[in-house]
Nucleic acid binder design. Structure first.
Lengths: 151, 151
DNA sequence: ATCCCCGTCATCCTTTCGGGTGATTTCGGG
DNA sequence: CCCGAAATCACCCGAAAGGATGACGGGGAT
């Protein structure tokens, strides 16, 4: 309710996972090496295996980490205007500001149109962003349309 | 200088670049090895370097491939408007930036996703605004959709 | 009367945008 | 071969936006 800014590292777990996995792999490779592999085969095999394995791991890491960046799909099969509005708890005034944001107006222009100060507009827009779970006005506009809050 | 340019053509040059680069790396490592680096230092150093290097390469490759997936194969149900695109004189790259702007990404995020600097994104976006006759990204997103330039 | 929500406004601070200018490289067409 | 378009990047500056916090009055609900 207050701070969802709390320390939260979405990439920490995968990093730990891959780090530990990599460590285990290295340990395994070392074990194999000391058994006889490196003695029996040239070092190029060892390096090649390492390269291959870690290339794959790197690709995996890259894919996984960029997938996190994608905006949440947010399926909304049932909710339309009134239900979504009530569900999110957005107030009429905030809805008004959201509509003007989606029209591409600046905070100053919104304030002039609604006869309030720019600071007030910023307060409203901040609350809108909070309730929509976004932090940029383009995202707010998009999400507002997706949810049927605004035309 | 010329190597960086490989970012431009995703077909042949990157493959050559990474292939030759990898080969050179391996050759270098082998050279170092035969110069008794591996004899002087434990094999773990050798393996660690290989792992690190190829993890980075792997991440790069993974990101690059997903990027190509985003650009090329897009069986979208709607149809972008080629006439409007040509009429406005917007370039493919600018169109790409416009699409990401409409998704609510910041310039920094766009740069990270497209593997270019934030400055480049700003240059592109400025031109897009100019061509669309707007001066804010929300308006650009709206107009791009209205004209059928983006989904 | 009291409490809480809503709307209003403010201040401080950081980040992001927008606009402008200049530069380099690559590539295709004349 | 030169020329221009496209793409890349850098630097600067001012404006806009965003985040956090505090305050205050009106109006319902308890």
């Amino acid at each position: 309710m207050t701070f969802r800014r709390a320390l939260h590292f979405p990439h920490l777990k995968p990093a730990l996972f891959y780090g530990l996995g990599g460590g285990l792999l290295i340990a395994l490779l070392r074990y194999i090496e000391y058994q006889h592999f490196v003695r029996a085969y040239p070092n190029e095999l060892y390096g090649g295996m390492l390269a291959l394995i870690f290339t794959v791991i790197g690709i995996h890491l890259g894919l996984r980490w960029t997938r996190r960046q994608e905006v949440a799909p947010e399926p909304r099969p049932f909710a339309t205007n009134p239900e979504a509005i009530r569900e999110i708890g957005i107030t009429p005034r905030e809805l008004e500001i959201l509509g003007l944001i989606a029209e591409g107006l600046s905070n100053r222009e919104i304030g002039e149109r609604l006869f309030v100060s720019e600071n007030t507009v910023k307060t409203h827009s901040s609350r809108v962003f909070e309730k929509l779970g976004v932090n940029r006005r383009v995202q707010a506009a998009q999400k507002g349309k997706d949810l049927g809050l605004i035309p």
